[in-house]
Computed example of a mutant assay.
Amino acid sequence: MSTIAFAKPRQDGLNTNGIYKVSRNPMYIGYFIYFLGCVLLTRSILLFFALFIFQISAHWIIISEERWCIHKFGDEYLSYMKNVRRYL
């Protein structure tokens, strides 16, 4: 759902439709759920640590993306941030 919604932004490039009305980063949530499922199925401690490192890295990427969006979209993105949670 997030990939389909991501492919259909508004004319100015900001995407606040579909699943993006619920979460500002649904693709990252999807990645996390998928990899968490892999961790639980394999019961791998190594994969668990890889997931932990991935999630920390993803969080810093998201913060960087948010700064870029604030710069590009300004007050409209700040308003979006107030109304929609970063994750869930």
Rank of each mutant, 00 (worst) to 15 (best):
residue 1 M to S: 10
residue 2 S to R: 01
residue 2 S to E: 11
residue 2 S to W: 08
residue 2 S to D: 07
residue 3 T to P: 02
residue 3 T to F: 12
residue 3 T to V: 08
residue 3 T to C: 03
residue 4 I to V: 13
residue 4 I to P: 01
residue 4 I to A: 07
residue 5 A to H: 15
residue 6 F to I: 09
residue 6 F to Q: 12
residue 7 A to Q: 14
residue 7 A to F: 04
residue 8 K to W: 01
residue 8 K to D: 05
residue 8 K to E: 04
residue 8 K to F: 06
residue 9 P to S: 02
residue 10 R to S: 09
residue 11 Q to P: 13
residue 12 D to Y: 13
residue 13 G to P: 14
residue 16 T to R: 06
residue 20 Y to D: 05
residue 21 K to R: 15
residue 21 K to P: 08
residue 21 K to Q: 12
residue 24 R to K: 09
residue 24 R to P: 13
residue 24 R to D: 11
residue 25 N to Y: 06
residue 25 N to G: 02
residue 26 P to R: 04
residue 26 P to Q: 04
residue 26 P to L: 04
residue 27 M to L: 15
residue 27 M to F: 14
residue 28 Y to E: 09
residue 28 Y to A: 02
residue 29 I to N: 03
residue 29 I to Y: 08
residue 29 I to D: 01
residue 29 I to K: 09
residue 30 G to W: 10
residue 31 Y to S: 06
residue 32 F to P: 09
residue 32 F to Q: 07
residue 35 F to K: 01
residue 35 F to P: 00
residue 36 L to W: 12
residue 36 L to S: 13
residue 37 G to Y: 04
residue 41 L to Y: 11
residue 42 T to M: 04
residue 42 T to H: 01
residue 42 T to Y: 03
residue 43 R to W: 13
residue 44 S to P: 11
residue 44 S to M: 06
residue 46 L to E: 06
residue 46 L to G: 01
residue 47 L to T: 00
residue 48 F to Y: 11
residue 49 F to S: 04
residue 49 F to D: 00
residue 49 F to T: 01
residue 49 F to E: 07
residue 50 A to M: 05
residue 50 A to H: 02
residue 52 F to G: 01
residue 52 F to H: 02
residue 52 F to E: 05
residue 52 F to L: 13
residue 52 F to V: 03
residue 53 I to M: 07
residue 54 F to V: 00
residue 54 F to P: 03
residue 54 F to T: 02
residue 55 Q to R: 07
residue 55 Q to M: 14
residue 56 I to F: 15
residue 57 S to I: 08
residue 58 A to S: 12
residue 60 W to N: 14
residue 60 W to I: 10
residue 62 I to R: 04
residue 63 I to A: 08
residue 63 I to S: 10
residue 63 I to C: 13
residue 65 E to V: 07
residue 65 E to T: 09
residue 66 E to Q: 11
residue 67 R to H: 14
residue 67 R to T: 12
residue 68 W to E: 14
residue 68 W to D: 15
residue 69 C to L: 15
residue 71 H to A: 11
residue 72 K to M: 05
residue 72 K to H: 13
residue 73 F to N: 12
residue 74 G to C: 09
residue 74 G to P: 14
residue 75 D to Y: 09
residue 76 E to F: 03
residue 77 Y to K: 03
residue 77 Y to L: 05
residue 77 Y to E: 13
residue 78 L to P: 07
residue 79 S to I: 08
residue 80 Y to G: 03
residue 81 M to F: 08
residue 81 M to W: 10
residue 81 M to D: 10
residue 81 M to K: 14
residue 82 K to W: 07
residue 82 K to E: 15
residue 84 V to C: 07
residue 84 V to R: 08
residue 85 R to K: 10
residue 85 R to L: 02
residue 87 Y to H: 08
residue 87 Y to P: 10
residue 87 Y to D: 05
residue 87 Y to W: 15
